[in-house]
Design a protein around this nucleic acid. Structure first.
Lengths: 235, 235
DNA sequence: ACCTGAACACCGTTCAAGT
DNA sequence: ACCTGAACACCGTTCAAGT
């Protein structure tokens, strides 16, 4: 769990530079760790390698984070913060929510290895007051009751985070495995006797055409349609 | 990625018993690993500990799996197989799909630590021919076109797996952290000035009432409503 | 044919010592 | 006050040696 990071507030203290001349800070460590993740993948993020990339003794980390797990949580928080930031409001609730969902998902996937870490970081933490206020505003203005708005808000955030984690895991797989995926599916479909599996046989082409594309955009649209029904029936 | 496990087909070979008298097999290793996961959590599953729990030299593992990663994939596969098994068909497509989704989610969460492992195992592998055939049958009988049925099928499976992974991660957290979660949220809401955050202030009670409950059942219902709309507009 | 155990190259973390 | 480095208790994996 997160320590009260950043409680030694911004820039107050005078830090001694590292042997290699670096002034450490939480933010520098997080940024460097994300660089290591992009470069070496999730496996490559170790205390020793991070020290190397940072230009400091590996154990200097422990002055800023209580454990490597704590650092990973900080990375996850950073990612979620980034994902939930900056949407625009047009007044069209479906369009605004759709926009939010797609942008958040996309921002997550820009760092797939970090996103996989964040997968074990759970669901909408209460930090995102601003986006939370915005989304709730959109829902209430659209006519959802307070009770339904609260539930729908949680559902939307969970949907985005859950899907982002799933799709990030797919992107984080080694390229050669991802490449053979579609071919493997084709072989499997072809091997099934059409008399026993008529439905699969009927739609096999369609399934292959989907390939590795994420079903997230469709899920969002279907969800928004469902919410529109909800709005009519429950007010 | 998975080796061609089980290719040395069932019970054919005569295996030498272990020093402690155990006859090893893939299935025994998977079952024992899941027991270790339940007992010690994800951190506790190591080659050495598994060897200990198994009653064998740790390195005996490598005769059955090419790496610990390969074993984890096998566990993930086992879990997904189990989750996607055994649904019943009543003829009411919404009810049948709802049933499938809730049962699969529940089965996943019965082993949260294993489920977190499976989170990085990506999306509907093509092994589940039987449930796939069933679900596609439900969708096509309901009137979805082949193209939409294929897309909706993928979406449903992804939704279940993504949500299951998210909720499993929450369940896998240490109990003491989960316990303080609601209290932490209350403090955060209370600290926000209602004039700047009127929407949050208005629904804070509702959000707290949701507590740590999963939004998955609601997501499924909303999704099914959206699919009903889709059925009307696209046939 | 399959299990064993030493060995190797790594981990994360602690703590006394430096400056 | 904060960085360093030796030390400790672990990892996953390989491979020659056993039976």
């Amino acid at each position: 769990m997160a320590t009260p990071r950043g409680s030694a507030a911004g820039g107050r203290q005078r830090r001694r530079p590292t042997k290699r001349g670096v002034i450490l800070s939480e933010q520098l460590i997080i940024d460097t760790a994300m660089r290591v993740l992009r470069r070496d993948g999730a496996e490559g993020l170790s205390v020793r390698r991070l020290g190397q990339a940072l230009g400091a003794d590996p154990t200097a980390l422990y002055r800023y984070f209580s454990s490597i797990e704590d650092l990973k949580l900080a990375i996850a928080d950073e990612l979620i913060d980034r994902a939930l930031r900056g949407s625009e409001i047009t007044g069209d609730w479906k369009r605004d929510l759709r926009n939010f969902a797609l942008r958040a998902h996309e921002s997550y996937l820009a760092d797939p290895h970090a996103a996989v870490l964040a997968a074990s970081r759970v669901t909408g933490r209460p930090h995102e007051a601003k986006i939370m206020e915005q989304l709730l505003g959109i829902l209430r203005t659209a006519g959802f009751s307070d009770e339904v708005a609260a539930a729908v808000y949680m559902m939307m955030v969970d949907l985005v985070l859950a899907y982002a984690a799933l799709d990030a895991a797919a992107l984080a797989l080694p390229a050669d495995i991802r490449a053979t995926d579609v071919a493997r599916w084709r072989d499997v479909y072809a091997a099934l006797p059409p008399t026993d599996f008529p439905n699969i046989a009927a739609v096999a082409d369609r399934l292959l055409a989907i390939g590795g594309r994420s079903s997230f955009p469709m899920a969002v649209d279907v969800m928004l349609e469902g919410m529109a029904s909800l709005l009519i029936t429950t007010g």
